[in-house]
Design a protein around this nucleic acid. Structure first.
Length: 1219
RNA sequence: GCGGGUGUGGUGAAAUUGGUAGACACGCUAGACUUAGGAUCUAGUGCUGCGAGGCUUGGGGGUUCGAGUCCCUCCACCCGCACCA
C-alpha cells in the first residue's frame, strides 16, 4: 500500500500515531480499491477446484434502499463464500436484481416517474450500498430481470411451459405436440384432462373439432394456460388489489370499495407437479419447518369426490371430502357464496336473503373470511338428496367455504367437524350422531378411533374400513370416486400491470398463439401513463399501436364501436387536455355553480384543449389512449370529483337519482356521477350504455359547444348514447322523463363488449359466474397482443440458472455451465419465501429438467433461513373527522374507546364508517420521531414537517383536551407527564417487519460511516443466531468496534507503531490460537456466526492477557478473521509483508496436539446441584475419582455421615452424588 | 381460522449429544490514568439474603440421578396464507 511508504521514510512519530490508529475509513477504501483493481472476485466456469454455489435470495431494489435487515443474510453468505474459497473451492457467489414489480409501478402512479428510471436509480443505490459492506460478489455476472436480455429467456421458458403438458403416466413434462398426436390416434382416453376431467373425446371427435375447439381443449392441458380467476377489484383505483390491501371491504389506500371480479388470467399448472414437489422435499436439505410449510401449502388430501342431486332440479352438487366414512352424518351442505350453482338453486322465497348475504360476502377478502369467528350463512331454500338414504339435506351458503378450495362445496358433518358443528348449533340444524358415545353433543368428535353407528351399511366399522367401503359403493352406483385433492391451486401467473414481462402471446379469434422464438424478446413498450386499461385490463391495453397487430376494418364496415383509425386521424376528435383544463367536464365549483359553468378562460388560452388540425401531426400518441387514460393523477382527481358530486347533488339530481336507483326504471342499474374515462356523466346505465344528463342550461360558448360535441362524438364511438333533460323538465314532470328513459333503454341494442366496465356485473348478484360469456381478447378477426404482464416471481423462478452463464445470447444458459455449477449448494433467505418463490422455482426447475434443458430437478440443495431484522414502528391511532371538522364517533357500546392513545386526526383517511369505530392505527415514519426515555415521541414541530411532506397527514392535527372529552376520555390531563404533552405526543411502538410500507426502515449507510463496514458486518453477526428474528438496535455495536480496535492494537501500537515480533510462540499462545481456529471453523460450518464473533473476542482477550505480539500466532489470526472482517484483514496482511490479497489466502488448520486437554475440572453435584469442583486427569480411574469425591470435605458435609445411594460419574462431564 | 417460528438477567445472547445456566458483549456501579474523555485499563454486576444458603430459562404439570434442552398443557409475541417480493 503506497500510502505507507512516505511515513516510514519520514519516520515522524506523530504521523505514525495517526496512521497507526485503527483508521477504518482509509483501510476499507484501500482494500476495496485493491480488490477492484485486481478483480479478485471474478469467478471462472472452468476450474480444477471443487465447485461451490452459494446464493442469496434475489433482492427487489426498493426505493427505500437497502435496510439493515437485508445484509443479515448477505453477510452470512459472504462470510461462508469467503470461507469456502479459502478452503479451496471455486465459489460462485453472484448478485443481481429482481427488478420488475409493483412498488415501482405504484411509485410511477404517484409521482409520474417511469419505472425504468426509478429502478435504475434504486439499483445504483443498492449497488453502492452493497459495495460499501465489502461483499465478494462477482459483479461481472450481475443482471436484472427487467433487462430484455434477461426477460427474453423468461419469455422463452414461458413458451416452453405453454407448449408442454404434464404426462401423468410418465410424471413429467412433455411437448404438447405429442399430446396432439395421441389425440389424433386415440382421443383423450389415456390423458385425463387436468383442467376439466369431464372433457372426453375420441380421435374422430378430435379431428372434427374446429381449431378453436381444439385449442380450447389444449389450453386445459398446457403447463402455462389461460383461464379466468377472481380478483379483488377496486373500481375507484381501477386496479386489482392484494388480499392484504383490502381491509373491511375497502382498499387500504383511500378506503374505496372493493369487489370480487373475474378476469382473464394466465396460470401455471403447478398442481400437476404437486406430487413431485412433495417427493422432492425428501431429497433436499431444508429445515423441517420449511418442508412442513410446503407440505401444508400443497395440502395433499386423499378422499372422495361425490355428487348430490338437488331435489326437484337438474343440478347436482359436487363435493370433495376426506371423510367419506361420515356420509351418513351429513346434516346439511354448504356452498361457497360465489359458487356457480347458487343462483340456479336458490328458491324465490330465499332470493332476497341470499342476495343480501352474497352482497355482504362480496366485499370480504379471503383472509377475513378464513379468520372470521362469527358464524354467518344463509339458507338457499334448496335441498340436496342423500345418495344412499334419499334423505333431504338443506343447502346453505356460508363464507367459511371458499370457492377456490376443492369443489367450493362441502357436505357438512356436524358431529365430526368442529366448524360444521358450530354452524349447526348456530342455525339450529339437527345433528345426526354417527360417532356413538364419544360424541357428547357439546362439540364435534374429529378423531378416527370409534365405530360407526346410524350409518346403514357401514355400521360397526372403523372409519378407515368404512371409507373404503363407501368409495366402493359410490363407484358401483356411479355417484363418485376416490380422489386425491390438493389445497394448492394453480399459480396465477398474470397481473393487470405494466411493470412486468410481456407475454409472448398474440390472440386471434379467441385463440392464444405463441410468438415464434425469433420474435423474442417481446419488449415492454415504453409508456408515460400507467393508468388501468378498460375492463380491468392492464395499462398495456391502452397502447393500441402495440396491442393491435392487424389493421382493423374501417369504421363504416364494422360499425362504430371501436375507434380504429390511426391516432393521427383520430386526434382531431378527441380533446386531450387534462380534466382540469377541460374545465366543465369536471367541475370543481359548488353544485350551484356547476349548472351554468362556462370556462372563463379565453379560447386562445385554452387553445390546446381542442386540437387544431394543423398540429395533429405532432400527436405521436393515440389520442384515444390519452382520453381514456389520462394521467393517474387526473384520473384520481376525476374520481374525487365524482365522489364529491355524489355527496352534493343538486335538487334535480337527487330527485332523478331517487327515481333511477335500485333498478326502478326497466330493471336496469343506474350509477350516478360515474366516471367514464375523463368524463363524469350525471347518470349512466352501463349495461345499456345510456347516459342521462341534467343541465341547468345548455352550454353556449362556441368553444364549449365544440368541445361538448367532440366528447359526445367520442362517447358515441364507444357505443354510448345520451339523453339530456333540463332542471325544469325534471321538476315539472319527472314521469315523462322516466318514460323517455325507459323507452330508450328497451329500444337500445348494445354490443356487450365495448366499454363495459365490468362485463360480469350484468348478473343479478353482481358476482361473476363461470357460465357467463367473458370477453376474450382478439375476437372478431383482429390479432391482438396479450396485455397482461407476468408477476414478480416470473423472473425470480429461474435466475439462479442465469448466474451460471449470465451473458449468453443464444440460450438461457450453456448446458456445460449448468452441468458444472449444478444445484445451488447453499441458498440463504427468509422464511417468508417458504411457499411462494421456493415452490415456483422448484416447479420451473422440474419442468426444465423434464424437457431436457438442465440436468437436475431441484434448484436448491440446502436452504438456510435467515431471521428477520425487524423494525420498531411508531404507531398512533387516528380519529377520523368529517369535512367540517366534527369527530365521527361510532361506538356500539360493546367496547369502549377510552384506551385510545390516538392523537392524530386525518380528514382524508377514508375508512369503513359502517364498522363500530372510526379509529384506525397509522404508522408514523420513524425519521420524524425522537426517542425520549425509550419511547417514540412526535413533536409538534415534526408533525408540522410531516404534514408538509406527506399527503397522508395533510389534515392531521393533535387532539385537544376538548376532543378527548368528545370521545369520552374525561380524565386526561395535558402536561409534561404521560402520553400527551403540550409539545407533542408519545406513540405506541410495535416490533414488526422492516418495510417501506411500515415506515420503519433503517439504512445501514450511517452505521457504516460511523463505524466502518467490518464493524457493521461483525455486529450484524454478533446480534444473535442467523435464523432468529430480532428488532434492530444499535446497542452493543460499540463493543464490536472496540474489539476491532483491540485486534488492530495487537499489531499496531498507537505510539510505537508496528509491534509484531518473530519470537517463538508459547504453549499457551498456541493453545489459544488452535482452539480458536477449531471453533471458528466449526461455527462457520454450522452458520453459528454469533458465537464465532464471540470467540474472536475471547482469543483477543486471551492474547492480550498473554501480551502476545508474535507473528506465528497473529498471522494465522488474520487469515482466520478474513471472512468476517475482510478489510482490516487485507490491511494487516499487507503489513505482515504478504504479496497478493488475503482473499486468496488459505484458511489456517488447527492441530489436535495444541487443542487436546489432559485434565478436567469436574463439577461435583449433590442431588444434581453443583456444590464444588474437583480436577482429575481425563484418564483417571473411576474408582479413584469416586474415592476422592467421597473424601471431599464439602461432600462430607452434605452427606451428614450417611452413605450415598448412588454416585454417578460421566467421564469428561460431571460427577453427581445421590443421597 | 390454518400453518410455521420464538420466549433465558436491565439489553443482545451462550450452553453443538439431557450433565457447572447466564460464556461473549452492551448497559450500569466503583476505581486508575488524564488538561480533557464519548479514549484506555482494573474490579464488580441474574434475583434475594449479613451469612450459610435459597430462588431462577414465558406459566402449570410430567419423565430422569440430573431438564433451558425430552413429553403434555396453557399463555404471549412474530412471520406466512396465493396481486409485496
Amino acid at each position: 500500500m503506497a500510502t505507507y511508504k512516505p511515513f516510514i521514510l519520514l519516520n515522524l512519530r506523530t504521523i505514525l500515531a495517526i496512521y497507526m490508529e485503527y483508521n477504518f475509513e482509509s483501510i476499507e477504501r484501500d482494500a476495496k480499491n485493491k480488490w477492484k483493481e485486481q478483480d479478485v472476485y471474478k469467478v471462472s466456469n472452468k476450474s480444477d477446484k471443487p465447485k461451490f454455489y452459494i446464493l442469496d435470495m434475489f433482492p427487489y431494489p426498493s426505493g427505500a434502499g437497502l435496510h439493515v435487515g437485508h445484509p443479515l443474510g448477505y453477510i452470512a453468505s459472504d462470510i461462508y463464500a469467503r470461507y469456502k474459497r479459502m478452503k479451496g473451492f471455486n465459489v460462485l457467489h453472484p448478485m443481481g436484481f429482481d427488478a420488475f414489480g409493483l412498488p415501482a409501478e405504484q411509485y410511477a402512479l404517484e409521482t409520474g416517474q417511469h419505472p425504468v428510471n426509478t429502478t435504475e436509480k434504486n439499483i445504483a443505490r443498492y449497488h453502492e450500498q452493497l459495495d460499501n459492506i465489502g461483499f465478494c460478489y462477482d459483479w461481472s455476472r450481475e443482471f436484472r430481470t427487467s433487462d430484455k436480455k434477461y426477460y427474453r429467456w423468461t419469455q422463452w421458458i414461458f413458451l416452453q411451459l405453454f407448449n408442454s403438458f404434464l404426462d401423468r403416466k410418465l410424471q413429467k413434462a412433455v411437448p404438447i405436440s405429442t399430446l396432439v398426436a395421441a389425440f389424433e390416434q386415440e382421443g383423450n382416453t389415456n390423458h385425463t384432462c387436468p383442467g376439466d376431467a369431464a372433457i372426453r373425446f375420441t380421435a374422430a371427435e378430435w379431428k372434427a373439432y374446429s381449431e378453436k375447439q381444439q385449442q380450447d381443449i389444449l389450453m386445459h392441458y398446457r403447463l402455462a394456460f389461460c383461464g379466468y380467476g377472481e380478483v379483488n377489484w377496486c373500481e375507484a383505483l381501477g386496479t386489482v388489489l392484494a388480499n392484504d390491501e383490502v381491509v373491511n371491504g375497502v382498499s387500504e389506500r383511500g378506503g374505496h370499495p372493493v369487489v370480487k371480479k373475474k378476469l382473464r388470467q394466465w396460470y401455471l399448472r403447478i398442481t400437476e407437479y404437486a406430487d413431485r414437489l412433495l417427493q422432492g422435499l425428501e431429497t433436499v436439505d431444508f429445515s423441517e419447518a420449511m418442508k412442513e410449510m410446503q407440505r401444508n401449502w400443497i395440502g395433499k388430501s386423499v378422499g372422495a369426490q361425490l355428487s348430490f342431486k338437488v331435489q326437484d332440479s337438474a343440478h347436482t352438487i359436487a363435493v370433495f371430502t376426506t371423510r367419506p366414512d361420515t356420509i351418513f352424518g351429513v346434516d346439511f351442505m354448504v356452498l361457497a357464496p360465489e359458487h356457480d350453482l347458487v343462483a340456479g338453486i336458490t328458491t324465490a322465497a330465499q332470493q332476497q336473503q341470499v342476495q343480501e348475504y352474497i352482497d355482504h360476502v362480496k366485499s370480504r377478502s379471503e383472509r377475513e373470511r378464513m379468520a372470521e369467528k362469527k358464524i354467518s350463512g344463509c339458507f338457499t331454500g334448496a335441498y340436496a338428496v342423500h345418495p344412499f338414504t334419499g334423505k333431504t339435506i338443506p343447502v346453505w351458503i356460508s363464507e367459511y367455504v371458499l370457492a377456490g378450495y376443492g369443489t367450493g362445496a362441502i357436505m357438512a358433518v356436524p358431529c365430526g367437524d368442529e366448524r360444521d358443528h358450530k354452524f349447526a348449533q348456530h342455525f339450529n340444524i339437527p345433528i345426526t350422531n354417527i360417532v356413538g358415545e364419544k360424541y357428547t353433543g357439546e362439540e364435534a368428535y374429529s378423531e378416527k378411533d370409534f365405530t360407526l353407528v346410524n350409518s346403514d351399511f357401514i355400521n360397526g366399522l372403523l372409519p378407515k374400513e368404512a371409507a373404503a367401503k363407501v368409495i366402493e359403493r359410490m363407484l358401483a352406483d356411479g355417484l363418485g370416486a376416490a380422489k386425491v385433492n390438493f389445497k394448492m391451486r394453480d399459480a396465477a401467473f398474470s397481473r393487470q400491470r405494466y411493470w412486468g414481462e410481456p407475454f409472448p402471446i398474440k390472440w386471434k379469434d379467441g385463440i392464444a398463439y405463441p410468438l415464434d422464438e425469433s420474435e423474442l424478446p417481446l419488449e415492454l413498450p415504453y409508456v408515460d401513463k400507467y393508468g388501468p386499461g378498460p375492463d380491468g385490463e392492464g395499462p398495456l391495453a391502452n397502447i393500441e399501436e402495440w396491442v393491435n397487430l392487424t389493421p382493423s376494418p374501417s369504421p363504416r364496415e364494422r360499425g362504430t364501436d371501436i375507434p380504429n383509425t390511426s391516432p393521427k386521424e383520430r386526434g382531431a376528435d378527441i380533446p386531450n387536455a387534462s380534466p382540469k383544463e377541460r374545465g366543465n367536464d369536471i367541475p370543481n365549483s359548488s353544485p350551484e355553480e356547476r349548472g351554468t359553468d362556462i370556462p372563463n378562460t379565453s379560447p386562445r388560452e385554452r387553445g390546446n384543449d381542442i386540437p387544431d388540425p394543423a398540429s395533429e401531426t405532432e400527436h405521436q400518441e393515440s389520442a384515444t389512449t390519452r382520453f381514456i387514460n389520462s394521467t393517474v393523477d387526473e384520473w384520481s382527481k376525476t374520481i374525487q370529483f365524482a365522489k364529491q358530486h355524489r355527496k352534493e347533488p343538486t335538487v334535480e339530481e337527487d330527485k332523478m337519482w331517487q327515481a333511477l336507483r335500485n333498478r326502478n326504471v326497466g330493471g336496469f342499474k343506474f350509477r350516478r356521477q360515474h366516471p367514464i374515462a375523463g368524463y363524469i356523466p350525471d347518470f349512466v346505465c352501463l349495461e345499456k350504455k345510456l347516459i342521462v344528463e341534467i343541465d341547468g342550461g345548455y352550454h353556449n360558448e362556441p368553444e364549449q359547444i365544440k368541445f361538448d360535441n367532440a366528447r359526445a362524438e367520442w362517447l358515441k364511438e364507444q357505443g354510448f348514447s345520451m339523453l339530456r333533460f333540463t332542471n325544469n323538465e325534471v321538476n315539472q314532470n319527472i314521469n315523462t322523463v322516466l318514460d323517455t328513459i325507459a323507452r330508450e333503454l328497451v329500444a337500445k341494442h348494445t354490443e356487450p363488449e365495448q366499454y363495459n366496465e365490468n362485463s360480469t356485473s350484468a348478473n343479478a348478484d353482481g358476482l361473476a359466474h363461470s357460465g357467463t360469456p367473458l370477453p376474450r381478447r382478439g375476437d372478431g378477426g383482429e390479432v391482438k397482443r396479450e396485455t397482461n404482464t407476468m408477476p414478480g416471481y416470473a423472473g425470480s423462478s429461474w435466475y439462479f440458472l442465469r448466474f451460471m452463464d449470465p451473458h449468453n445470447e443464444h440460450e438461457f444458459a450453456d448446458r456445460a455451465a449448468t452441468d458444472y455449477w449444478n444445484q445451488v449448494d447453499i441458498y440463504i433467505g427468509g422464511t417468508e419465501h417458504a411457499v411462494g418463490h421456493l415452490l415456483y422455482s422448484r416447479m420451473w426447475t422440474k419442468a426444465l429438467y423434464d424437457l431436457g434443458f438442465i440436468g437436475f430437478d431441484e434448484p436448491f440443495k440446502k436452504l438456510v433461513n435467515q431471521g428477520m431484522i425487524q423494525g420498531v414502528s411508531g404507531i398512533t391511532k387516528v380519529v377520523i373527522v368529517n369535512k367540517s371538522g366534527d369527530l365521527i364517533i361510532k361506538d356500539n357500546g360493546t367496547d369502549n374507546i377510552t384506551g385510545i392513545d390516538a392523537l392524530l386526526v386525518d380528514r382524508d383517511f377514508h375508512h369503513d364508517f359502517n364498522s363500530n369505530y372510526t379509529i384506525v392505527e397509522l404508522h408514523i415514519p420513524i425519521e420524524y420521531l425522537e426517542i425520549i426515555s425509550g419511547k417514540y415521541f412526535l413533536s409538534n414541530e415534526n408533525l408540522n414537517r410531516l404534514k408538509k411532506e406527506s399527503y397522508r397527514f395533510t389534515n392531521a392535527r393533535f387532539l385537544t383536551l376538548e376532543d378527548y372529552k368528545i370521545i369520552g376520555v374525561e380524565d386526561l390531563t395535558i402536561g409534561e407527564e404521560g402520553e400527551l404533552r403540550r409539545d407533542g405526543i408519545f406513540l405506541a411502538s410495535l416490533v414488526e417487519k422492516m418495510s417501506k410500507s411500515k415506515y420503519n426502515v433503517v439504512n445501514p449507510d450511517e452505521i457504516i460511516a460511523q463505524y466502518g463496514a467490518d464493524t457493521f458486518r461483525m455486529y450484524e453477526m454478533f446480534l444473535g443466531p442467523l435464523d432468529v428474528s430480532k428488532p434492530w438496535d444499535t446497542k452493543g455495536i460499540e463493543g464490536v468496534h472496540r474489539f476491532l480496535r483491540k485486534f488492530w492494537r495487537m499489531y499496531n501500537d498507537d505510539t510505537k507503531g508496528w509491534i509484531v515480533t518473530a519470537e517463538a510462540a508459547t504453549e499457551a499462545e498456541l493453545k489459544a490460537l488452535h482452539k480458536t481456529i477449531k471453533k471458528i471453523e466449526q461455527d462457520t460450518e454450522r452458520f453459528s456466526f454469533n458465537t464465532a464473533v464471540s470467540q474472536f473476542m475471547i482469543v483477543v482477550n486471551e492474547l492480550n492477557d498473554l501480551n502476545c505480539h508474535k507473528r506465528s500466532i497473529l498471522e494465522p489470526l488474520v487469515q482466520l478473521i478474513t471472512p468476517y472482517a475482510p478489510h482490516i484483514a487485507e490491511e494487516l496482511w499487507q503489513q505482515l509483508g504478504n504479496e497478493g490479497s488475503v482473499v486468496a489466502a488459505a484458511f489456517p488448520k488447527w492441530e489436535e496436539q495444541y487443542v487436546a486437554e489432559n485434565s478436567k475440572l469436574y463439577p461435583v453435584a449433590i442431588n444434581g446441584k453443583t456444590r464444588t469442583e474437583l480436577e482429575f486427569a481425563l484418564d483417571a480411574f473411576e474408582e479413584d475419582i469416586k474415592a476422592t469425591v467421597m473424601a471431599n470435605e464439602i461432600v462430607q458435609k452434605w452427606l451428614e455421615g450417611k452413605a450415598p445411594k448412588k454416585v454417578i460419574f460421566v467421564r469428561g462431564k460431571m460427577i453427581n452424588v445421590v443421597l
